[in-house]
């Protein structure tokens, strides 16, 4: 099989490029501590409302600067507190928040704009992601997976002050 010298060089360079890419990704995981969502348990979507901790949606402090936000996603809202009419989560600047989310019905998305929080919420699974909010402001939580005709109305907010 004939391969020209220039093409050989190109193939080697291409291979190096891909290897560098993988190394950079490796560094992001090992050195910069960026992680993908990992399995956090199963649940029956039909009984979410009575299964702890999802029977008590809301934010609680679990340590100095450590918070846990339990959220139930359903068509078409995120329930972020026991009060169903509220869609706001309030945390202080510097709070490290672990979000525990599940769905009672279809697949939803969970993306917080201007952060790297981006995960799927799949009925039957619990999604766990965390983020440290170092800057004050209002962050939109957006459902970014199609979940029915009200999908574009499904959002909540994290208010960091």
């Amino acid at each position: 099989m004939h391969i020209e010298r220039l093409e050989k060089i190109f193939m080697v360079l291409g291979g190096i490029l891909l290897a560098v890419g993988i190394a950079a990704i490796g560094a992001s995981v090992l050195a910069a501590d960026v992680h993908l969502p990992a399995p956090s348990g199963r649940i029956d979507p039909r009984t979410v409302r009575t299964t702890p901790p999802f029977d008590q949606p809301g934010v609680r402090q679990i340590g100095p600067n450590e918070y846990e936000a339990v959220i139930v996603a359903y068509i078409w809202a995120f329930q972020v507190s026991p009060d169903i009419s509220s869609n706001e989560i309030h945390v202080p600047v510097g709070a490290n928040v672990t979000f525990k989310v599940t769905s009672t019905d279809v697949i939803h998305g969970f993306m917080i704009e201007r952060t790297d929080v981006n995960a799927m919420i799949i009925p039957g699974q619990v999604t766990e992601v965390s983020y440290t909010f170092d800057k004050p402001g209002e962050y939109l939580i957006i459902c970014h997976e199609y979940c029915g005709t009200g999908h574009h109305t499904m959002f909540a907010k994290v208010i960091v002050a």
Partner: peptide, 22 residues
């Protein structure tokens, strides 16, 4: 970004995906 799949399995597919770029 799926919750139900272990991270190490996802990372194997990272390698195969980069391989098919070749």
């Amino acid at each position: 970004t799926d919750p139900g799949i272990p991270v190490w399995m996802k990372s194997i597919h990272l390698f195969t995906t980069f391989a098919v770029v070749f």
